[in-house]
């Protein structure tokens, strides 16, 4: 019993260190697209959602993981989309851009209205299905950052919002598959932007 007070005190200190803004903006706002059931609507409000159809399966973000982490390391920038296939199995899609090295989240504003051809030499796509990395051969497709914009809360800069669409065909473990109706609308801020090494 005598240990409970220090633990409670520590808990209070940790909670006091969290900003309400960050916690609020980290939440996802999922509004289902009536035209593509199971996927979130395409939006540009920083709703922290992503989704794509994988053949006839649906992959969407979940409430537990960040839908997207941006990691700069080893001379490339990775956009790691964390989702679930059919709501249960972990399914991650990583878009890796070689020689693109943003220093902070605000450097991502350069991506506004940029189309990335996934068959390009400096582009790589990695897929992890239920913890297992799959071999991927991209046949065609593109990743479009339709809008990358600054986010302010009460006139204070609070990150950037990446919104866009994607689709591609690939051979995964020897089987041709299509990723279609892909869309994302994610806030990138202190919590999900990392520069390693």
């Amino acid at each position: 019993m005598k240990y409970i007070y220090p633990i409670l005190f520590l808990l209070l200190v940790v909670l006091a260190g969290c900003s309400d803004d960050d916690l609020y903006l980290e939440e996802s706002v999922f509004i289902e697209d009536p035209e593509v059931p199971g996927l979130p609507i395409y939006s540009e409000y920083g709703y922290n959602t992503f989704g794509v159809r994988y053949d006839r399966d649906v992959i969407t973000n979940n409430t537990a993981d960040y839908p997207l982490k941006v990691i700069v390391s080893d001379g490339s920038c990775s956009f790691n989309f964390n989702g679930r296939k059919d709501y249960y199995n972990d399914f991650n899609i990583t878009l890796k851009l070689d020689n693109y090295l943003p220093n902070d989240e605000y450097d991502l504003l350069d991506l506004n209205n940029q189309v990335i051809d996934l068959t390009g030499e400096q582009v790589d796509v990695e897929i992890e299905d239920n913890g297992k990395e799959e071999s991927v051969e991209i046949l065609n497709g593109q990743f479009t950052f339709k809008k990358v914009q600054r986010l302010t809360v009460d006139e204070v800069e609070s990150g950037v919002i990446l919104s866009g669409v994607f689709d591609f065909k690939a051979i995964i473990n020897g089987e041709p598959v299509a990723f279609s109706y892909g869309r994302f609308d994610v806030i990138i801020s202190y919590s999900n932007f990392f520069v390693l090494n």
Binding site: D20, D21, Y45, L151, V153, D154, S158, I161
Partner: peptide, 20 residues
């Protein structure tokens, strides 16, 4: 848990602006 709402007042060229 959230003692405020976020309202979006702008989604234009200047970016997305929320107010608490």
């Amino acid at each position: 848990s959230s003692e405020f709402m976020m309202i979006n007042i702008s989604n234009g060229s200047s970016g997305v602006e929320y107010l608490k």
